[in-house]
Amino acid sequence: MHRFANPTRFMRLSAALLPWTAGAALALIAAGLYLGLFGSPADYQQGESVRIMYVHVPSAWMAMFCYTFMAGASAVGLIWKHPLADLAAKATAPVGACFTLLALITGSLWGKPMWGTWWEWDARMTSVLVLFFLYLGYIALINAFDDPTRGLKAAAILALVGFANVPIIKFSVDWWNTLHQPASVFKAGGPSIDPSMLAPLLLMGVGFTVYFLWVLMLRLRTEIVAAKVRALRLRQVRSGAPATPSGATPLGAKG
């Protein structure tokens, strides 16, 4: 496992994968948008407003997927002290927060005409709002420490504690009476969505997942490069060389 999670290997692998994930994400999302907006029928009850589902549901899936990934990476970082795992968790948080925010807002835009309300404090909506705050808390906690390793460790513990919320989100609609409807796709007995509507939904879902991989690789590369910059600066200070502002070249340096 260490063999694959070593930063140098990751840099090489992600450089090769980046153009493919970028192309696949753009193609899948474009196809999903086309089918969702033009190539699928209106719903027998919701009419055209059903199309909001094609951005709302994949965003909500990704909100939970990103958190699960972040908690898993945090656990690996805590237990096996793997530097790449910690950085992967850190790189995931803003992506997950964006998806959660999108799920909340698009859900609100659907809820107003269909349910008759922008927001209600039912178990599903409240637990997703808590998820959003967990992401924000995680990001804030990392930045609250001067020492990056200590910040990552504290945030990893928060990510693991907050993971209790993920099954609550998933099963809230089954455990309690909620305004929100139960699951339509991942449920016993198969999806209760017409195939013509399931196709754009799944395309968008897979597209969002590949988009996540794309942005994750970009952000993880950024974290690794930033760590190298920090290490180089530290070495510079230790070796007594004058501190160099970025972009400037000190006298006597060999090109």
Binding site: Y44, M53, W115, L179, S192, D194, M197
Partner: peptide, 10 residues
């Protein structure tokens, strides 16, 4: 408030 069910179809 109206509730929606989990069935989607044309």
């Amino acid at each position: 408030l109206a509730k929606h069910d989990e069935n989607y179809m044309p």
